[in-house]
Design a binder for these strands. Structure first.
Lengths: 168, 168
DNA sequence: CTGAACTTTCAATAATTATTGAAAGTTCAG
DNA sequence: CTGAACTTTCAATAATTATTGAAAGTTCAG
């Protein structure tokens, strides 16, 4: 397999993976392209390499910047904007985790809180069963939330280090 | 908020969450419905409560069984099949993790392995940069894979216990 | 200031994914 | 065996989501 094929395959697979995780496929292909690029790329470079329109590149690149996975690089004396991806995969994973936690886990915990205060007689089986389930999910979520907060702040080496210590 | 509203909200939110994770919304609404149901439900119950067709219920319930999140319950002397969800949320999370690991992480690691053996001169900057990135992702994935394997086999209490020890 | 070189927006449209519901298949009580 | 009571399949269609590309907006060298 040569380098061009290899890059192609990587981009393709990264797109497949992302689409299984509810992330726009093109967005993650742009991400993959930038991850393995050895230079910063312009909008035109991305358009050409992925065969997508200018508008599409613009939208997806902006969303990637929203996720803190890509940043704009401005070269003095050049009107074009270039883009570069965060290459430290640990940081990539932590940024994604941070965003998803904020956007999804936090609202979920908030709702579960409200739901656990449902009206009605606690001795009623239906209500008891419901609040039990809700409370269990809440407990789990709060735990997960805490672990994630620590991870996000942690250094990669420290994290794996402390992990490996207990898991063997 | 009364119990009916609360259940509704839970089902709705569970569906929203799932769709952000690339999971069919209806499938996770069925899951939510079964999670908070105090009885096992038949196909007709699910059809009625979520206002969806019989075929739809059938397909989604079968996929939930594929994920080991729901099981068929057969009551002697009744032709109808009933469905029940796994209610231990730790097990739910571990089953999902197990499936996703198997379906997504494992193939990814396999591809990364192949990609790191790309042809060409290792002193070429482009190739060096590519294999470096690929190897970093691989290292990360293998680590994550190991942790997940241990978690999947772990007991909930043991897991949080050992976690809490190091994370404070 | 001006206009060339860019970026951004967004309505129209294409592509993808989910849903229906009728038909076919299966099971089992009688 | 039979047929009623169920489950399953799948082609047609509906709903959702992504993409295009032209028009509007912005920036900055000269």
């Amino acid at each position: 397999m040569n380098i061009t094929e290899a890059k192609q395959k990587f981009i393709e697979q990264w797109g497949v993976l992302a689409s299984q995780w509810g992330i726009n496929r093109t967005m993650s292909q742009v991400h993959a392209l930038l991850l393995i690029a050895d230079k910063n790329l312009s909008t035109d470079d991305i358009m050409e390499q992925l065969s997508i329109s200018r508008g599409n590149v613009n939208m997806n690149v902006r969303e990637l910047m929203d996720w803190n996975l890509v940043r704009k690089v401005i070269t003095p004396g050049d009107r074009k904007e270039y883009f570069a991806a965060e290459k430290d995969i640990w940081k990539v994973a932590m940024n994604i985790m941070e965003q998803r936690k904020k956007r999804e886990l936090d609202p979920m915990v908030k709702l579960l809180d409200e739901l656990s205060r449902v009206e009605g007689d606690k001795r009623n089986t239906e209500i008891k069963s419901f609040t039990d389930t809700v409370n269990n999910i809440k407990k789990f979520s709060v735990h997960a939330d805490k672990i994630m907060s620590v991870m996000i702040k942690a250094e990669e080496n420290w994290f794996w280090g402390s992990f490996i210590k207990i898991f063997k």
